[in-house]
Write a protein that binds this DNA or RNA. Structure first.
Lengths: 213, 213
DNA sequence: GCCTTTTCTATCCATGCGGATAGTAATTGA
DNA sequence: TCAATTACTATCCGCATGGATAGAAAAGGC
C-alpha cells in the first residue's frame, strides 16, 4: 500500500540518508564501475545495509538507477551550464573547472556517473539507455542554447553552427571524463581542459578576443 | 624452458589462433567491459578453452593484457594516423571513418580496447596503466607530428598550437568512442564525428579553405 | 508501556565466477 | 609405431557475489 502519507508509525530511522548514500555510491561506482562495485563494498561506502539496499531500493541495479536519477537531477539543477545566463567565457570557465585540481579527488558532478552508465553497460537495458539519452539530450540542449544566444548577441563568429558546436562540446566533455579516469594523479586533465577552453574562446568574435590561442 | 625453437614435438594444434581469439575478445570486452566478460563467455566468443586461457595466457587478466598489446601493436601499425604523410584533410577523413556506418557494427581499431582499459579498471594496476599511457602517448605524438608538419607547410593557421590541438583531438577521439558506445544503432556517431571533422578543417588556412564552417 | 513499523545484525543460500585437475585426443619427431 | 608434447573435454574447487530470512533493536503512535 501507500506507505507514506498515512503511516501509522514512523519506526526506526535509517542510519544513512539517501543523499549521502548516493554520494558514497557515486564515488565507488566511478572508481570501480557498476560490475566492479560489490554490494558489500556498497555497504561500506554508502553506510547502507544490504538489507536496506534490497528492501527500499530493490537491489543493486535499481539502486544504481536511482542513484543515477538523483545524480542527474542534481547535475541538471546545479552543475549543468545555465542556458539563460552563460556567456562564452562562463562556458570556458565551466570546462576549466571540471578538471580543476580541487575537484579531482572527489568527483561529484558534471556527468561522471552518466559516463559510468555508458561504459558499464551494453545497450541491452532500456532503463539504462533512457538515462543516458536523458543526459545527452539535456546537455546538448544547454550547449545549443548557450551558443545560439551568443550568436544572436553577435559575440560569436557567425560560421559557428550551434548544433554542430554542441556536439563538439559533448565529445570534448566525454573525452575529458575519460582522460580524468585515465590519468588521475597528475596535471594532465587540466591541460586537456585548457584545450577545450581554448576552443570555446576561439569562437568569440575577433573584436571580443584580446588574445586567445 | 624455451618452448619455441627447439621443441621436440609440436603436439596438438590449437583450434583457434591467437589473432582470431583476439578479435573475438576485443568485441566481447568492448560490449561487456572487462569485469562483465566472463571466462565462459570468452570461451564462446574467442574459440579458446578455459584451459588454454589458463595455460598459455595465464588467466583472464593476463589474456586481456596480451589482447591489449596485440591490439595496440596493430592499431599503431595500421590504424593510427600516419605522421609522415597525413594532411589535415586526411586527418579529417580519419575522424570521419571512425564513426562510419560500415565500421559501426564491428569496431576493431581506433582505440576502443584502450578506451575499455580506461573505463574497466581503476589505476591500481601498473600493467594496465602502462598500456593506457602507451596509447595516449603514441596517439598524442601522431597528432602533434601531423599538426606541426601542417604548420611548417603553412597549410594551417599559425595560431594553432600543436600540443594543445593534439590534446583537443585526443579528447575528441575519446569522446567519440564514448558516444559510439552510448548510441550504437543510429546516425548519431556520424554527426558527432562530423563536428570533429569540421574542427580540423577549420584549422586550414583561409586560402586552402573553399568553404568549411 | 505496549504495539506497530521499519531498520538493524547476522546468517544462510544458490549461482556464477576464475581457476585447477585428470583423463583423452591430436600431432609430430624419432 | 611409439614417445613426447600439447590442447581438448569434463569435472571439481573455493570463493565472492546478489539476494533472502529471521530475530533483535530502535522509534514514534496510542
Amino acid at each position: 500500500m501507500d506507505r507514506k502519507g498515512k503511516g501509522k508509525s514512523v519506526a526506526r530511522k535509517r542510519k544513512t540518508d539517501h543523499d549521502s548514500a548516493v554520494a558514497g555510491a557515486l564515488d565507488l561506482f566511478w572508481r570501480q564501475g557498476y560490475q566492479g562495485a560489490s554490494t558489500r563494498e556498497l555497504e561500506q561506502e554508502t553506510g547502507l545495509t544490504r538489507f536496506t539496499l534490497q528492501t527500499t531500493y530493490g537491489g543493486k541495479e535499481k539502486f544504481f538507477l536511482k542513484t543515477l536519477d538523483t545524480y542527474l537531477d542534481n547535475a541538471e539543477a546545479r552543475h549543468f551550464p545555465d542556458p539563460e545566463t552563460f556567456s562564452l567565457d562562463d562556458l570556458a570557465d565551466w570546462f576549466r573547472e571540471i578538471a580543476s585540481a580541487e575537484r579531482m579527488p572527489k568527483i561529484e558532478d558534471a556527468g561522471c556517473l552518466a559516463f559510468n552508465a555508458i561504459s558499464s553497460f551494453d545497450r541491452s537495458d532500456p532503463e539504462v539507455n533512457d538515462r543516458i539519452e536523458r543526459y545527452l539530450t539535456a546537455l546538448e540542449g544547454r550547449f545549443v542554447a548557450i551558443i545560439s544566444r551568443a550568436k544572436t548577441e553577435k559575440v560569436i563568429q557567425s560560421e559557428v553552427e550551434p548544433e554542430e558546436a554542441a556536439r563538439l562540446l559533448i565529445c570534448l566533455l566525454l573525452g575529458l571524463h575519460t582522460i580524468m579516469k585515465a590519468r588521475t594523479t597528475d596535471q594532465f586533465p587540466q591541460s586537456y581542459a585548457e584545450a577545450a577552453v581554448g576552443l570555446v574562446e576561439g569562437w568569440k568574435t575577433p573584436l571580443a578576443t584580446p588574445e586567445s590561442w
